[in-house]
């Protein structure tokens, strides 16, 4: 029997679902599964029993909590799709809204992080899911395979003054050979999970952390990381760093 899927959007930009549909394996994926619930492409009335639920988006409204519990109840396995569902996502920047990952309310069986999840990785995840396997995430951080990783100097003093390079300073992968941190640009690669093929870094931009942390929560990691480097006064209080894709559970 084909595995049944429920694909649900909570508060999100629908980018993960549009990525899902644009995947080159999407037609084959559709063929090998049975879609129960997927409002984007299918008329369906209610969330029915299924083998796998893929949930995109964060929880920003009280009503979504009941919805997500229902999804959990009716699915054998629930996977968080995209950074919003995994960690809270972009809405974490908001002070007035909450942006909770699924795991704040239900137990999840795995996650497919990324904003959006990188196509190749996403495709592999789907193949695994269809084959009733788990999703394999790298346990290392971005530095592990970073094209800019050079020799590590213990005593080099890092002073961060910028979040991004100025537009005129952007250099492509091959023109840029030094770690962003050494140039005073904040790269969140050290606290971000490997797996995105370093696309931003190859394009000359530092990692913004969309794949989320490997362990602990995003904010703890940012704080731990930044406590090691000197940060310009202006950036020290900039929520654009700390809450980029996630905020602590207590900061609702």
């Amino acid at each position: 029997m084909k595995p049944r899927f429920n694909i649900i959007s909570l508060t999100s930009c629908t980018g993960c679902i549009s990525t899902l549909i644009s995947l080159d394996i999407f037609p084959q994926f559709l063929e090998r599964i049975k879609i129960n619930y997927f409002l984007f492409i299918l008329d369906s009335d209610d969330i029915e029993e299924c083998e796998i639920a893929l949930v995109e988006g964060c929880i920003s409204e009280e009503t979504q909590i009941n919805l997500i519990r229902k999804i959990r109840k009716r699915a054998k396995r629930v996977f968080a799709l995209g950074t919003c569902a995994c960690f809270g996502g972009i809405l974490s920047l908001s002070n007035s809204k909450k942006a909770e990952p699924l795991s704040n309310h239900i137990e999840i069986d795995g996650m497919i992080p990324g904003c959006p999840p990188p196509s190749k990785f996403f495709g592999n995840c789907l193949i695994n899911l269809v084959g009733n396997k788990d999703i394999i995430l790298s346990e290392k951080n971005m530095c592990a395979n970073c094209p800019l990783r050079g020799s590590i100097e213990i005593n080099s003093h890092i002073k961060i003054t910028k979040i991004n390079p100025n537009p005129e300073e952007i250099r492509l992968g091959e023109e840029n050979s030094e770690c962003f941190l050494n140039n005073g640009i904040l790269c969140l690669g050290p606290i971000t999970r490997d797996g995105c093929e370093h696309k931003c870094i190859k394009m000359g931009l530092p990692c913004e952390g969309c794949m989320g942390p490997v362990s602990k929560d995003f904010t703890s990691n940012v704080v731990n990381f930044l406590s090691l480097i000197e940060l310009s006064q202006e950036l020290q209080k900039y929520t654009g760093i700390y809450n980029r894709f996630s905020k602590p559970k207590i900061n609702r």
Binding site: E139, N141, M142, C143, A144, R149, I154, P190, V214
Partner: peptide, 21 residues
Amino acid sequence: ENKCGLCGLCLKICPYNAITI
């Protein structure tokens, strides 16, 4: 080592220079 991404943050924080890459 299966988890270490060699980012070197530990090298920066160790007061005894006990970790090397």
